[in-house]
Design a protein around this nucleic acid. Structure first.
Length: 849
RNA sequence: GGCCGCGUGGUGGAAUUGGUAGACACAGCAGACUUAAAAUCUGCCUUGGGGCAACCCGAGUGCCGGUUCAAGUCCGGCCGCGGCCACCA
């Protein structure tokens, strides 16, 4: 055996695995299935460290489960539609399809050099008609099942990307990719009825026991259920009523105004005959939705001149305002304001000189003297100034108001969700065409199934801004499928979340041409372990949950939840560096001078070290995985990623940590060489009950439970501990070589999911013909997990003073006597008689004196 | 503003869920090998004090207090950092 050559070994074994098709998977109902999936990447062209971490984690799980006898499905594909391809097309005059496919090829090569155990035969790319035709079929089924609808609505318009953005894609009032200030526009859009499932998506969160609590909480908050009431106010001089939504119907007697959203139908109606109001509404629609601006934004209103009648007090008239803080999208788009108990309403009331009547009185305060100044009272208390409600608790008052309103037909309790239907139309080329044809006579007509897929045309140009599909000379001109008259194709495409909401189903049977979701899904689904970034906690993960339910309704699947277990990995971080001009510097351009100072190549500019942040191109604190794979090999990169931090925490990338992983693998190689030399004719000795054998079995047990719980860093620590122990054995002592061999072969198996190449090479050197992947996971002997003797700590008044060796499960009295006989204990007690002695079996003795 | 996390050596992190704090590493220091360096190997490595020494005494898990025989772990109050949501009625 020569010095370990990672490069040769890794490419040799990658070839072996491919040739022997060791990762090919089939339905095999005789074995339990295990579906492990990492979030598929966008083909940007190069992998980054986040990918390396994500796919390493998934690969460890896949290989470990396979060794345990599971039939493991572990596929990889490409989330291949999306804007960057179009931007690249504009910049480089390339075609989005070519750009995307080239990137996929490049990234596939990179991923393959990581030695990941994918069944590449199942690879898919969402931009291929073979994929998206099924998506178009799903859309048609959604239409038929009342899960999708078209409506005119106010949308977020990104003026730079010339497209609509979902609410979730607007961050601080700006487009998530372009950073441009988002405008409001009214457009006809297709919407998915996710709100039909609000309650179910919420309540089913409880069943997702193998999801991180915080992800469940984020979805819980995102769905945002609130229990309140809808009330219909009579409007003076009008026949229609104003419906408001409130969660504080207990405060109804404190109401002093009503407010409606700028885009509320009543506001729109009034604006048609009132130019000042129209101006005000236009102003509201221009308003920025960024955090900072909202903080500062004044609560502004415009009195419509309409008055609402108080439903419980005929003498009270409530002026109706159009107000800039009322959202059309939530509740009914109208509220009643109770200034005394809502800060926003109070600000508004003070500005427009509206009455402030407290109706919830803090316990022990007289209703007659309680006043509200500039701060609304939002605490608990009893009702006051509220006629028949006086003296009730808030909860009692809510019930009473609800039942009175219900009895008189004015209102009823109502549950409202923050979750909104998701608009899916995007005015882009590089996406899945929405299979609809617009006919002047027949309206929006679904494309007949026999004509699917509606394929993207290849010949498009990006010379002008906007959607090239809409400008294409012929593509959109078709006959109406219903009446045959000339009609126009929908030129919008789906938002890319559509593709990623069901790809996990496609992996179960990716070559099925008839159906998007074949029968194999019933065998493989749900995904047993899904792994990816926390940034998808709400969007992707919630929409995938919705898709499963929608597809179930359409008969595609029988299950509700797509992902049984979820692991959200932390970010890969790195220190940041800036030169004397404040420009970011790549870690690779750094040079440490002899005096220890940091400079940047090539001109040795002085550099200051900044805090560690998520690796990002903009701050240049990136390390290119390819250079690491090239210099150290995949096993080193994988081992480092696993050993330094728990997977759900942020990982600090350090060169020295990588070196440490490199040194360990070389030490392991050397150790294997020594043991092999010493045991040329001696087999592994597995039958001992000595301390080393016990340590080996304890390591097996520990690593197994660590991997079960994704404590990869601890598993690595245990393996290193064992290799330190085995490395310390004197191979000249009789018996030791066989023991060392047993220990070492165990280490190879335990480390094989993490560093698979070196494991397979060592495995072969130790005389095994088949790759480690075919060996079954080692099982610890129960009887070797417990020691004959235990070390028991002795405390005096809670302070550690000594330890004693006792046989396992020694009698309480024996332990007590031994503890009291310990010289240090005698010295510490100074002749005092213990008042009490607590004995925790096999663990600790505490003497209270 | 609302909700939720997290604070352990110089650093990343362990600690069987209330029972011997600091496993395993990284960095550092000392030594061995070497003409020398790199690599490798060995040792030290929370902190203050004492001892030639194996060791001994005290303090110590952000701060203050509490519960307990026993607290990094549980409770209360501060301080700091981070995440998500946010004009949601």
């Amino acid at each position: 055996m020569a010095r370990y050559n990672a490069k040769e070994t890794e490419s040799y074994w990658q070839q072996q695995w491919a040739d022997q098709q060791v990762f090919a998977v089939q339905e095999d109902r005789s074995r339990p299935k295990y579906y492990v999936l990492e979030m598929f990447p966008y083909p940007s062209g190069r992998i980054h460290m986040g990918h390396v971490r994500n796919y390493t984690l998934g690969d460890v799980v896949a290989r470990y489960k396979r060794a345990q006898g599971f039939n493991v499905l572990h596929p990889m594909g490409w989330d291949a539609f999306g804007l960057p391809a179009e931007n690249a097309a504009i910049e480089n005059r390339s075609h989005p399809a070519d750009w995307t496919r080239d990137n996929i090829a490049a990234m596939r090569t990179q991923l393959q050099s990581m030695g990941l155990s994918y069944d590449w035969d199942r690879e898919l790319a969402t931009c291929e008609p073979g994929y998206y035709r099924h998506e178009q079929k799903m859309f048609l089924d959604f239409l038929a099942n009342d899960l999708v609808y078209r409506k005119e609505s106010w949308v977020n318009w990104d003026p730079v990307e010339n497209t609509v953005l979902a609410n979730e894609q607007v961050i601080d009032g700006r487009g998530w990719r372009s950073g441009a200030l988002v405008e409001k526009r009214k457009l006809a859009q297709w919407f998915l009825k996710i709100t039909d499932y609000s309650e179910e998506l919420l309540s089913a969160l409880d069943g997702l026991e193998r999801w991180p609590d915080r992800v469940r909480l984020m979805q819980h908050n995102w769905i945002g259920r609130s229990e309140g009431a809808r009330l219909r106010f009579e409007l003076e001089g009008r026949d229609d009523r104003l419906e408001v939504y409130t969660t504080r119907h207990d405060t109804l007697f404190g109401a002093s105004f009503c407010a409606i959203a700028a885009n509320h139908p009543l506001a729109q109606e009034q604006a048609s005959s009132n130019t000042d109001l129209a101006t005000f509404i236009a102003e509201c629609n221009r308003m920025s939705t960024s955090e900072a601006d909202i903080e500062k934004a004044e609560k502004k209103g415009f009195a419509t001149g309409i008055y609402a009648r108080h439903p419980l007090r005929p003498d009270v008239r409530l002026p109706v305002y159009v107000a800039n803080f009322v959202l059309m999208e939530y509740g009914t788009g109208a509220i009643f304001g109770c200034p005394a108990h809502d800060q926003r309403d109070l600000d508004f009331a003070l500005k427009y000189n509206l009455p402030v009547l407290p109706v919830v009185i803090p316990e022990g305060v007289d209703a007659a003297t309680f006043t509200v100044g500039e701060t609304a009272y939002t605490g608990d208390g009893r009702l006051g100034n509220s006629e028949f409600l006086d003296g009730m608790t808030v909860a009692e008052a809510k019930t009473e108001v609800a039942s009175r309103l219900q009895a008189s037909g004015i209102g009823e309790t109502s549950v409202t969700y923050r979750l909104r239907d998701r608009g899916v139309s995007r005015q882009r080329y590089w996406g899945c065409p929405i299979p609809v044809i617009h006919c002047d006579d027949c309206g929006a007509v679904p494309v007949p199934e026999t004509e699917l897929p509606v394929e993207l045309p290849r010949d498009i140009d990006f010379d002008e801004p906007g959607n090239p599909l809409a400008r294409h000379p012929s593509w959109k001109h078709v006959g109406c499928p219903a009446c045959g008259k000339p009609a126009l194709r929908e030129t919008d495409t789906f938002d890319t979340f559509f593709e990623s909401s069901w790809y996990f189903l496609r992996f179960c049977d990716p070559h099925n041409t008839d159906r998007g979701v074949g029968d194999a899904a019933a065998y493989w689904m749900p995904v047993d372990q899904y792994i990816g970034g926390i940034e998808h906690a709400v969007l992707h993960l919630l929409y995938s949950r919705f898709f499963m339910r929608a597809l179930k309704k359409c008969g595609y699947v029988t299950q509700d939840e797509p992902f049984d277990g979820l692991l959200t990995q932390g970010m890969v971080c790195h220190e940041t560096y800036r030169d004397d001009k404040g420009k970011w510097v790549l870690p690779g351009d750094l040079l440490t001078l002899e005096d220890g100072s940091l400079v940047a190549r090539p001109d040795n500019r002085p550099v200051t070290r900044g805090r560690s942040e998520k690796m990002s191109k903009s701050k240049k604190n990136v390390v290119d995985p390819e250079s690491i794979l090239e210099t150290y090999g995949a096993d080193v990169a994988r081992l480092f990623m696993l050993s330094d931090s728990p997977p759900d925490r942020d990982l600090e990338w350090t060169d020295s940590g990588v070196d440490g992983a490199w040194r360990y693998l070389n030490r392991l190689w050397k150790l294997g060489e020594d043991i092999l030399g010493a045991t040329a004719s001696e087999p592994a000795r597995r039958d001992g009950d000595d301390e080393v054998s016990r340590a080996i079995h304890k390591t097996i047990d520990g690593v197994t439970s660590d991997l079960d719980r994704f404590h990869f860093n601890k598993a690595v620590a245990r393996i290193r501990e064992l290799s330190n122990l085995i490395g310390g054995l004197d191979l000249n002592q009789p018996g030791n070589p066989g023991l060392a061999r047993f220990g070492f072969e165990t280490i190879i198996m335990l480390i094989s999911p993490m560093a698979p190449h070196i494991a397979d090479e060592l495995w072969r050197q130790f005389g095994h013909a088949d790759p480690v992947i075919h060996a079954s996971w080692p099982v610890a002997s129960k009887e070797l997990l417990v020691d004959e003797n235990v070390t028991i700590g002795i405390q005096i008044n809670g302070k550690m003073r000594a330890t004693i060796e006792m046989s396992l499960d020694a009698e309480r009295e024996t332990v007590e006597a031994a503890a009291l006989a310990e010289p240090k204990v005698i010295a510490q007690l100074e002749g005092k008689t213990p008042r009490k002695i607590i004995v925790v079996p096999n663990r600790i003795v505490n003497i209270v004196a």
